[in-house]
């Protein structure tokens, strides 16, 4: 299958403008960008996609082994950049995608030339002096939480979601139709996300980088954003007066403004 269909790639915006690749994090799909996207489109070319296993991606391409760590996702970003022949792109990664961007950028230096890391965390689990915000037990609790919440997913829905695109879509948008993910896939993605430790990879970032963090984020606290800022040479840090882990939803105007300012001035 063609890469653009496999990753459910959507392109829009100003074809002559700077190229932004918006990558969603754990828990949702490219719908996460629906509020900032229109703010970026007038000046930028915008590409969004779903990771394999999320949203409208090709679920048959999912592989528990490949996606059990972030390298598998980073390899997909590299492949996507090559297949779509993206050049000189600003990779905007939210949450775990920030780390995926950190891993992918050095592999394709002519394609990803700048990074925007939105509420990044290179390591969620506390380790020695490092405060990621969580213990290993906390992550196990999250996995239990995922087990008990099959939101928008059931055995009868799965074929519809996985069905070929030619099939007529259900007339009515289903409850919790965004961010659907099979519980099996979610479990693997959660482990890959929350047990990853990519602190050492921050040193490998040589491209201009913007870190966008929220003043009150229960997932990636400010110390973590500061840590990332300290470990990526020459990076810029913007702290939004926003709450939560998803400023593209809770503070779309400020998030878009920060991205656009960085694009214009870096």
């Amino acid at each position: 299958m063609e890469a653009s269909r496999r990753f459910n790639v959507q392109q829009s915006g100003n074809p002559g403008g700077p190229l932004l690749v918006l990558a969603h994090g754990f828990g949702c799909d490219q719908n996460m960008w629906r509020m900032v996207r229109p703010l970026l489109e007038p000046t930028c070319r915008v590409v969004t996609f779903d990771y394999i296993g999320a949203g409208g991606s090709d679920l048959s391409a999912w592989d528990a082994e490949r996606y059990s760590n972030l390298d598998g996702y980073a390899a997909d970003v590299v492949e996507l950049c090559r297949k779509l022949d993206l050049r000189d792109a600003v990779f905007v990664g939210h949450s775990v995608s920030a780390t995926i961007g950190v891993l992918a950028a050095p592999v394709v230096p002519e394609r990803i030339t700048r990074l925007v890391l939105v509420t990044p965390s290179p390591c969620f689990v506390d380790d020695g002096d490092y405060r990621g915000g969580f213990s290993r037990d906390d992550i196990d609790e999250l996995l239990t939480s995922l087990e008990s919440n099959y939101l928008g997913w059931s055995a009868t829905m799965a074929p519809v979601i996985m069905g070929n695109p030619d099939r007529p879509v259900l007339g009515q948008e289903l409850t919790n139709s965004f961010c659907r993910m099979s519980p099996d896939i979610a479990r693997v993605f959660a482990r890959a996300t929350f047990l990853a430790d990519n602190r050492a990879d921050l040193d490998g970032v040589t491209v201009p980088t913007l870190i966008v963090q929220c003043a009150h984020d229960a997932i990636a606290p400010r110390e973590v954003g500061d840590y990332v800022h300290d470990h990526i040479r020459g990076s810029r840090l913007v702290t939004l007066d926003a709450t939560g882990h998803c400023p593209q939803l809770s503070a779309p105007d400020e998030t878009a403004a920060a991205i656009l300012r960085f694009v214009a001035t870096s």
Binding site: G27, E141, L142, S145, N149, F178, A218
Partner: peptide, 19 residues
């Protein structure tokens, strides 16, 4: 609890905001 807090931030709040 902590696990549910992560779930809230990654799933509940985004879905509520979108839907």
């Amino acid at each position: 609890g902590v696990g549910d807090r992560i779930y809230h931030e990654t799933h509940y709040a985004p879905l509520l905001s979108m839907q």
